[in-house]
Nucleic acid binder design. Structure first.
Lengths: 225, 225
DNA sequence: TCAAATAAGATAGCTTTACTATCAATTCAT
DNA sequence: ATGAATTGATAGTAAAGCTATCTTATTTGA
C-alpha cells in the first residue's frame, strides 16, 4: 500500500502554499540544499532563484522573506520529529524505552520511521536545525511571531516529550524545561562536537554514540527519585 | 584603594583597540545599549554612529564589521564571567558551594563581585548574551574565527567550570559537555522564560528563583554517584 | 616648539540585499 | 474558448555594508 506522511503547515508561514505547486515544492527542496550548503546568512532569494532557474520575484510570491522560509523549514522539521516520536513510541509499554527512543529521534540515529517524506533531504534539514534553528526565535519579533503560532510545532514537540517524562516520572516538577533543554542540548552539543570540540567530551572514536550516552545520562540521572 | 578589573581582549577582534581612545570606549558602551535596545540584526554601524554623534567610517576604523563587534562584546562578557567565577569561588573549600556560586554567576543573581567595571552596562550586556550570544558562533566562519582564538574566552569559562565539576566529582566523564550545557541552558531557559514561557516551568511568582532551582537540580542530580 | 604622525570628521561612492511593481506570456479550469 | 491564476522578465528603490579620500584636529617625540 502506498502512503505518505503529510505535514500540515501553519498558513501564516507563507503567502502561497509551497506544497500546492511544483515551483513551491522546488523552493522548499532546493532551499534546504542551499541553506545547508552556504548557510542561512549567506542565502538570498536571488541565489536560490538562480540555482532553481527561476526569478527572485517568484519566490517572494511564496514567502514574505527568508526568515519566514527558515521558520517554515524549522517548523516542518519539528512537526516531523513530533510524528517520529509518536511513531517510535507507539505500542511501547516501557516508559524508559520511550524516552530512549526520544533521544534517538533527536539525534536521528537508529530511527526506523518510514522513509523520507516527499523527497525532503532530511540529513540536510537536520544540519540546518543544528546550525540555524535558534535563529528562528532569537529575533526582535519573537513575540509577534509567537502570537501567530509560529513556534507551535516546537512547543508541541516539547509538550509531547514533557508528557513522556511525566509518564516515566509522575510529579516531576520540570518536565517542560527538561524537555526543551534536552532538545536544545542535543543540537548544540552536535554543533560543538563538530566545530568547537573542546567544549565537549566527544572527541574520539564514536562521537555520536558518546553524545547519545551523555544525553541519556543527563535525562535519566535527573529523573531518578 | 582604587582598583579596576582590566579585561584584556584578543587583538584579532578589532582593527584599533577600542579601550585606547574615548571614541573607542563609546563605541563599546553605546554599542551595548543599542544592541540591547533594537537587537543585533537591526543594529547597523550607521545607526550606532548617528546615536553617538560620529560617523560610520569612524566605527569601521575600530571594527571590521558588526559581527566582530558582537564577538568583542560576547568575549568580554565571558571573560568577565570567568573572572567572577574565580573571584566568587576563591577561598571556598566546599566544592558543592563553589558550583552553587557558578550557577549564581551564570544567572547574575546574588553576585557580590566588585561593581561594574569601566561603566559597562552589565544588565544590558547580560541581555545581549541571552538573546544574541549564539549568533557569535552559529556562522559559516566558525572554524576560521575559532582558528583566530575568538572563542577562547568561552572555552576558558567552560574549562574553569569543568575543572570545578571535576573537583566536586573526580572522574566524572562529561565535565566539559556538562559545563557548556549548563552555560547554554542558563541562557536559553532565561530567553524562553521571558518570550516563550510554555517551553519552561517557570511561569509563576519568583521565576528567577525557579530557574536557579532547576539548574541546581540539573547539575547536582547528574553529579551524584 | 615645530614637524610629523595619527585620529577623527566629512563626504562620496560602490556593490549587494531585500524588497515592490508592472506587464507580458503561459497554463489551467470550466 | 474565455477568463483567471501563475510564472517569467525586467525595472526600480531604499537600505545595508562596506571602501576611499581629503581635510581638520590632536598628539607626540626630537
Amino acid at each position: 500500500m502506498e502512503y505518505s506522511v503529510q505535514v500540515r503547515m501553519n498558513e501564516k508561514l507563507f503567502l502561497r502554499d509551497p506544497e500546492q505547486s511544483e515551483l513551491g515544492r522546488r523552493i522548499i527542496r532546493q532551499g534546504i540544499l542551499l541553506i545547508d550548503e552556504i548557510g542561512f546568512e549567506e542565502t538570498t532569494f536571488r541565489k536560490l532563484a538562480d540555482r532553481m532557474g527561476t526569478k527572485e520575484a517568484s519566490i517572494y510570491r511564496y514567502f514574505e522573506n527568508k526568515h519566514r522560509l527558515l521558520l517554515y523549514l524549522i517548523d516542518w522539521y519539528w512537526q516531523w520529529l513530533d510524528f517520529q516520536v509518536m511513531f517510535e513510541t507507539n505500542n511501547l509499554t516501557d516508559n524508559h524505552e520511550k524516552l530512549e527512543r526520544v533521544l534517538r529521534v533527536l539525534l536521528q540515529t537508529n530511527v526506523s520511521t518510514p522513509a523520507t517524506p516527499d523527497d525532503i533531504d532530511l540529513v540536510a534539514l537536520h544540519n540546518i536545525v543544528i546550525c540555524e534553528a535558534s535563529k528562528a526565535y532569537l529575533t526582535r519579533h519573537v513575540t509577534e511571531d509567537n502570537s501567530q503560532q509560529l513556534f507551535k510545532p516546537y512547543k508541541d514537540l516539547t509538550a509531547r516529550i514533557a508528557a513522556l517524562i511525566l509518564e516515566y516520572r509522575p510529579n516531576y516538577p520540570y518536565a517542560r524545561s527538561q524537555a526543551s533543554s534536552i532538545i536544545e542540548t542535543a543540537h548544540y552539543q552536535s554543533f560543538f562536537m563538530r566545530y568547537l570540540p573542546s567544549l565537549t567530551d566527544f572527541g574520539g572514536g564514536d562521537a555520536d554514540a558518546s553524545l547519545l550516552e551523555f544525553l541519556r545520562h543527563l535525562l535519566f540521572a535527573t529523573l531518578e527519585i
